[in-house]
Structure formats: structure tokens, C-alpha cells
Design a protein around this nucleic acid. Structure first.
Length: 562
RNA sequence: GCCCUGGUAGCUCAGCUGGAUAGAGCAGGAGACUUCUAAGCUCAAGGUCGCAGGUUCAAGUCCUGCCCGGGGCACCA
């Protein structure tokens, strides 16, 4: 509708003034109309004419040529446009039938997009940051899909490297030697906790004991060798592969519990490391990389970036090199139109260096790659949330805090509402900056929360379920009906905006406003038994569909009863 | 020191490519209701948009400088 209007106005301007300026259409306050445009104000300088006069000329021309819209002039020269009721109703029925394609023509139609997110490291637990990335990535992937893209979800994790060595040290220490058969003694349910405890042990050993540190460094090399020689049978290898698998299984369990979409591909670093190394070695000869203090580095300073190490003086590749290899692997697997990586904002500068280096070898891949970042999760008032695993905030800490808060506020146990609370509170803020997660606020049914939206959906469903039948009747809209329809008609615009900017919070804001609009309607208008029942039922039905649809993009269930 | 981020109501946040009176929720205040889910609704109160300049018919939004918070600056990921 917005696009249609834009073209109409543009053609009016062209007819009257023989110029084709950029026409922008905005949603406007209901007191003014449904849409407004400031073309007249912008043209006033160029045309040497008072803006208001221009606005009136355009508005008159517009009204003569359009039946579905009515334009009027206000203020210094705004043109306000009101949409005719029948068109408005048509829009809503289009949304219900999913005819409106959310602007796929200009967005992602036919594109193959690879989205990388979550990225937990095997041998370690998921912390709060992983939870955040997972939920953001899950939603962005769905936004892309709904605007026409074919999406591949990929997950990248470090199954080699110092953190693995620390964990392996702890594991072997707990097993009192390289005895893979002893792993049977660890109960299935305890695996994640056990491994994370081993990691903590290894961590302490590395920090506090020089001898143990040396052992861990040796293990680090051993893990790389194990991959290079495809060792699956040695005692050390058996322990490694078994525990690595335990990690992946554990992650899958968390994803299932979170009700997020599964991943198409799981890229372990061991798969990308040699490819990355090859590139770096080649680059060293070409002069893209250089030797410095025994290490191979990329000098980013000439591009205003940092200098970073790609291969250490020990000869081991760093994360930089693995990421370089990952880009190639993704490309070979998918030949994508666009590749998104969603991570925390602490690696912005790091990623710029990797991208700068990558550009020397694969400019076409680099151009299609985009790094999206989010901030950290903080707790309100700087207070510490107790964690069993030390000072890091874990994903499970967040979930259990939400569960507890929900339970104490409602004295109910409702996993769907708890998930809704967590997801919505993470997604409602613009991604990029840090967010403050307050478990009490997230489950607060009284406010701008996931459970509020679920409830808003359920009570509308209750009306529909009590109705004898649904039949579409077009009366003229009364004022409160019109407000609801007007809000509903914005759905495609919001979806398009959120998908174009890759910003889920736009959708959150909209759904909340929509629910408020409905609740307000609900309070002052009877549906069942009213003389306008048929008309209103259609609207309520449309509302439940839009809300349910929007929530599903956010990964939130819309139960019909609560 | 350099680079990236952010600074909007007591708290947590929106504010789309500059537009008409800066919007929500929470907390605190007031109210309506014999009715389809009150986990709701209505009203009032709450703001030098970090500070100072500049550009513009118009600046929370763009430019410059400064102040404050967070992050990053080579062998960690």
C-alpha cells in the first residue's frame, strides 16, 4: 500500500511539475491521516514557490485521480492521506490470506542466505551470550525466510584450540589417566556438568601451575595432530571424540528446549583450520601477511585497523585463520548471495581485520559477507546473578531465573510463557548495544512482555471460538474498528522494515502496539451478540492471525488458551 | 593514546531515509466496570533528548569539538 501510494504521488508531481523527485511516504498520527508525505516541503526551494501552494496543487491533482485515497494539506505543507475503508479492509483480508508478500520483490526473493549464529565451543557450556545470539539468529533467519530468502543456518565452534586443551586436561585428570572406558561411569544426564567442571579444573591448572600449563600446551598440539592424522582409535582420540560428541548432543538438547530451528550445518574449526592455514601461507609469499616476532601477522594498520596474529610463533593457527578458512568452506558448500555472521560486538574490530585479509584472496566472498553484532547481557543494577559455574552468566541461569520469576508471580508453571518471556525480552531492544535482562520484568504479565502478547492472543481466540461461524460482511468501519484495521494493515510494512534492517525489535514494538490497540478495542466494544458481530468477528480473527504470525517469526508460541 | 559503541522520563527502552505536540512499559498517583479471559482498559503526572557550537524552512535524528559509560587495540577466543 505504501509503495502504491508512493508511485501515485510521484506521478502526480511529474504531471504537474515535470520533475521526478524522491517521494517518501510515512505513517502518520491518526489525527492527521494514515500516511503523509513532505514532498512539497522539499520541492519548495527548487520550485521557488511556497510549500503550501505546491502541496495544494499536488493534493488536488491526487484527489482527481485516485478513488481509494483522500489527500489533504496541513501545517507548513504536509500532504496527509487517508485510506478509503474498502481498500483498508481489502488489505487486511490480503494479509489473512497471505497474499501480501512483504515486499519480496525488493528484498530477498530468490536469494540464498547463509546465517551463522550461536557458535558455542564444544567442551564448554552455553553462556548467556550464546543464548542471545541463538535467539537473535533464529529470528533473523526467519525474517529472511518470510521475505523470500532460502536460508541455511550454520553453526561454527572451536573443537580445537587452547580451550579444548584445557578441557581435555581436566577430563584426563578426572579419569586419572587416558582411560576412555571410564567415560561410561559418567551418567548421561551429568555429562554437560561434568565436562564443564573438567574445563574449570583445566582453566585453574593453566593459570596457577607452570608444570600443568606446559602439559596443557602439549595437549593442544596433540589435539591438532589427532585431526591431521585422522586418529580415531588411540585412547586420547577416543576420549576426545566421545566428549566432542557429548557436547554437540548437549547443544542440540538446549536448542530443542529453546524451540529454535535446528542447524543445517555444524562447522567445527578442525575442518576450516587447514584451509585457513593454506591461505595464510600463500598470503605470506604474496606479501599479504608478514612475519613479525616469529608469528605470521596481518598488518591492518595500513587500513586503519589493528595488526593481528594469524599463526603464532609456536606455529599454531589462531581464530583469525580458522575464520578465514570458514568463509571458503561456506562458499564452497552454498555459493550464497549473502552470508551473515551474528556475534557479540566485542569482536567487531577483530572481524574487520579478518575481512580485510580475506578481501585479498576472495573479494567476491567478502563483499557478500556481513557481520551483525549484538551487545552483552547485563543484569539490572549491576547485581550478580548467582551461577554455579563461577562468575560467568550461563544460558541455563537465565532460563531458570525466568522460570522462577514467572512461577513466583503467577504461581503457575508454563514453559511456553517462560520461553516467550525470555525471547521477547531479548528481542525487543534494538540489537547492537548491551541489554539489561531483568527476569522479573521479562515475565511481568502487566507490561511489554512475551506473556502479555500470548495472553492478548488467547483472549481474542476465546471470542472466535465461541462464535457460531465466520462470515465476511463489509459494513462501513466505525471509528474504533478502523483504528484496529489501520494497525493491522501496517503488518507488511513492519515485516519488510525488520527484514531489511535485520532488526527484530521493529516487529516486537509493532506486535505490542497491535495488542494494545486490540485490548483497547476489546474493552469498549462488544463482539458477540452485537449488531456488528459478523464484521467484528472478521476483524478479531484477522487480528489473531497477524499476532500469531508475528509471534511465530519471533519464535514465540501463540497458545489459544491460557 | 588510537579505534569502535552507547548517552532520550526515577528505572528499562522505542523514535523508520531530518518533519507537525519527543512515545511506550515498569515504579508511583487517580478512575471506571453486573457484559466475549481484569494476566485487561481509561486518565493524570513525569523530559535542558550528555554539553556547546554549526548546517536547514525544520535537528533527538546530519556536521564539528568536548564530557561520561562500555568494548577493542598481536601470539586468548
Amino acid at each position: 500500500m505504501k509503495n502504491q501510494l508512493q508511485e501515485l504521488i510521484a506521478s502526480c508531481v511529474e504531471r504537474t511539475y515535470q520533475i521526478s523527485p524522491l517521494v517518501t511516504i510515512e505513517r502518520t498520527d491518526d489525527n492527521f491521516g494514515d500516511f503523509s508525505t513532505n514532498v512539497a516541503l522539499r520541492l519548495s526551494g527548487e520550485l521557488q514557490e511556497v510549500a503550501k501552494t505546491i502541496a495544494e496543487t499536488i493534493a488536488t491533482e491526487f484527489n482527481n485521480s485516485s478513488k481509494d485515497f483522500v489527500a489533504s494539506v496541513a501545517g507548513p505543507g504536509f500532504i496527509n492521506i487517508r485510506v478509503g475503508d474498502s481498500l483498508l479492509q481489502q488489505t487486511v483480508s490480503d494479509i489473512i490470506e497471505m497474499k501480501e508478500n512483504y515486499g519480496t520483490d525488493i528484498l530477498h526473493s530468490g536469494k540464498l542466505i547463509v546465517v551463522e549464529y550461536s557458535d558455542p565451543n564444544p567442551f564448554k557450556v552455553l553462556h548467556a551470550g550464546h543464548l542471545y545470539t541463538t535467539l537473535v539468529g533464529d529470528t533473523i533467519a526467519r525474517l529472511l525466510e518470510i521475505t523470500g530468502a532460502k536460508v541455511k543456518r550454520v553453526n561454527f565452534g572451536g573443537d580445537v584450540g587452547l580451550h579444548v586443551a584445557r578441557a581435555m586436561w581436566g577430563i584426563i585428570n578426572s579419569l586419572e589417566g587416558e582411560y576412555p572406558e571410564k567415560l561410561k561411569d559418567v551418567a548421561k544426564a551429568d555429562r554437560a556438568t561434568w565436562m564443564s567442571n573438567c574445563y574449570v579444573q583445566g582453566n585453574i591448572a593453566y593459570e596457577e601451575d607452570e608444570v600443568k600449563k606446559a602439559e596443557i600446551v602439549a595437549i593442544n598440539k596433540k589435539v591438532y595432530e589427532l585431526h591431521d592424522t585422522s586418529d580415531k582409535s588411540s585412547d586420547f582420540a577416543q576420549i576426545y571424540w566421545t566428549c566432542r560428541q557429548w557436547s554437540y548432543d548437549g547443544f542440540d538438547q538446549v536448542y530443542q528446549a529453546l524451540e529454535v530451528h535446528g542447524f543445517d550445518t555444524y562447522y567445527p574449526e578442525s575442518m576450516t583450520v587447514n584451509i585457513g592455514k593454506k591461505i595464510v601461507e600463500e598470503g605470506l609469499m604474496k606479501g599479504v601477511f608478514k612475519k613479525s616476532e616469529g608469528a605470521v601477522v596481518y598488518d591492518g594498520e595500513k587500513d586503519g585497523l589493528h595488526t593481528r596474529v594469524f599463526i603464532t610463533s609456536e606455529g599454531l593457527p589462531t581464530y583469525e585463520t580458522k575464520d578465514l578458512g570458514l568463509a571458503v568452506v561456506k562458499w564452497e558448500d552454498y555459493k550464497f548471495d549473502l552470508s551473515l555472521m551474528i556475534t557479540g560486538n566485542d569482536i567487531i574490530e577483530y572481524m574487520k581485520v579478518v575481512q580485510a585479509a580475506s578481501k585479498h584472496f576472495y573479494p567476491e566472498i567478502t563483499e557478500r559477507t556481513k557481520h551483525i553484532t549484538h551487545g552483552l547481557i547485563k543484569l539490572p543494577g549491576g547485581k550478580k546473578m548467582s551461577s554455579r559455574k563461577g562468575n560467568v552468566l550461563l544460558a541455563e541461569d537465565i532460563l531458570s531465573a525466568a522460570k522462577e520469576a514467572y512461577n513466583s508471580q503467577t504461581s503457575q508453571v508454563d514453559q511456553s510463557a517462560v520461553l516467550a518471556a525470555v525471547k521477547y525480552s531479548f528481542l525487543k531492544s534494538r540489537i547492537g548495544g548491551d541489554i539489561v535482562y531483568d527476569p522479573d520484568e521479562s515475565v511481568n504479565i502487566l507490561g511489554n512482555s512475551g506473556p502479555y502478547l500470548q495472553y492478548a492472543h488467547a483472549r481474542a481466540c476465546s471470542i472466535v471460538s465461541k462464535a457460531a461461524s465466520l462470515s465476511s460482511v463489509d459494513y462501513e468501519l466505525d471509528s474504533s474498528e478502523r483504528l484496529l484495521v489501520r494497525k493491522l494493515s501496517m503488518y507488511p510494512e513492519v515485516m519488510r522494515l525488520a527484514a531489511a534492517e535485520l532488526m527484530p525489535h521493529h516487529l516486537c514494538s509493532y506486535l505490542y502496539e497491535l495488542a494494545q490497540e486490540f485490548n483497547s478495542f476489546y474493552e469498549s466494544n462488544r463482539v458477540l451478540g452485537d449488531s456488528r458481530e459478523a464484521q467484528r468477528l472478521t476483524l478479531v480473527h484477522a487480528y489473531t492471525q497477524v499476532l500469531k504470525n508475528g509471534l511465530s517469526v519471533l519464535g514465540i508460541q501463540a497458545p489459544e488458551k491460557m
